[in-house]
Design a protein around this nucleic acid. Sequence first.
DNA 1: CGCTGCTTTGATTCGTATCAATAGCAGTGG
DNA 2: CCACTGCTATTGATACGAATCAAAGCAGCG
Lengths: 229, 229
Amino acid sequence: MSDCLACIIRNRAICAGLNPPELALLGRMGRRQRIKAGHTLLWEGDEAPVVANVIEGVLKLVAATSDGREQIVGLVFPSDFIGRPFGGESAYSVSAMSDAELCVFNRDLFDEFAADHPDLQQRLLLRTLDELDRARHWMLLLGRKSASEKVASFLIEMADRLTDGGRGAGAGARFALPFGRQQIADILGLTIETTSRQLTKMRADGMIGLPSRREIVINDPAALHEMAG
Amino acid sequence: MSDCLACIIRNRAICAGLNPPELALLGRMGRRQRIKAGHTLLWEGDEAPVVANVIEGVLKLVAATSDGREQIVGLVFPSDFIGRPFGGESAYSVSAMSDAELCVFNRDLFDEFAADHPDLQQRLLLRTLDELDRARHWMLLLGRKSASEKVASFLIEMADRLTDGGRGAGAGARFALPFGRQQIADILGLTIETTSRQLTKMRADGMIGLPSRREIVINDPAALHEMAG
DNA sequence: CGCTGCTTTGATTCGTATCAATAGCAGTGG
DNA sequence: CCACTGCTATTGATACGAATCAAAGCAGCG
């Protein structure tokens, strides 16, 4: 059982809008779970018995070919929702990119609860529609953009999602990526070498700064947007 | 006003499950609209005042870069749903690939109706979740697969969707694509030349037959699946 | 200090895009 | 029925970008 009223993502997650009794009921269904960076919560193709809210940390959704090539098909941040309600097996695996904390529900129980709470279901629908738009936008990047455009687009999106308060990619914006070069490559459909070369080049051109392996500073947002296409 | 009870997609569209009075109400809100092949229903970035069910024909969802490169990010078949309920502007344009017939609703009215009908909203959620899975699966193709793998995967998916009764890519399966080479290229994130070369090669290898420009015959499903990766 | 794993840099290869020309098909009018 | 036109698809030659292969650099950590 979790104390939903004290939950730090309470106002941003799908739980927002539930009244205290409903929240208490949901709270009894859920349990807090910590997961270490690198560990996998759900495997592609497996029956997925749980859904969850992300309280802290960043997770990735990964699809893979039979010969082991990987593509990251989604990123999950705090207050985002994980899993496939009313569904069967997971279409991709879910792993933690950083240490993370989740609020996990048994899927059947959650489905039942959702069926009784149309407003929750609507919030789920809105989120899913947003995710779909985001995924489709990413398809344009994967299918049609060059390596430099991909990396620039990636930095802009990360600046939006990771700068505190979503101030976005303004001049001087600084943020730490929760993952390394290989993961960036897996997000962009590139190799680690190409990704590294593009970042190095952008630093050489003065567009961005790379104060440490995982930190990014945006020096020239206009040039970055230009480059993103 | 439309006669929903006589509608040929009535049992497969989101309307399925509504009782006759509800159906009559929805019918009064909707209007039938024909749209010619090549015409565009919604433009990327525009305020999207309508949602719709597809009754007949195939439409595409297209995202484009500022310099005009295009990526098809979704295909819409009969009984599928178009548009962004509870949303603002369209994230991509929607155009007809063949002559099509739609059942169009004013978005605000539809949203209102949906809010009062949780079961309809749930069917919408299920559809959206399926679409999201499909989109993410396509991201793997766009980001990580070679040209030959892309074309093979495409043929398998089209066989599933286009053979009558969804018999799929069995040996001898035959179907007509509702679009030409350029569109295939836009779906796969390739050029028309590469697409054409791959198809020609597959025909030369005896894997498939190409009896006419738009027709495909699957000769060797196993080899095709092998090639799709 | 010397591992170990991640990242950068370099040299080369390979796949797909691009550029260019030809071929095939569908529709139109003589 | 056949020549003409416009469009779509195929085929060929070449260029370019990103992958691959290989090695060196760099940080964190026992």
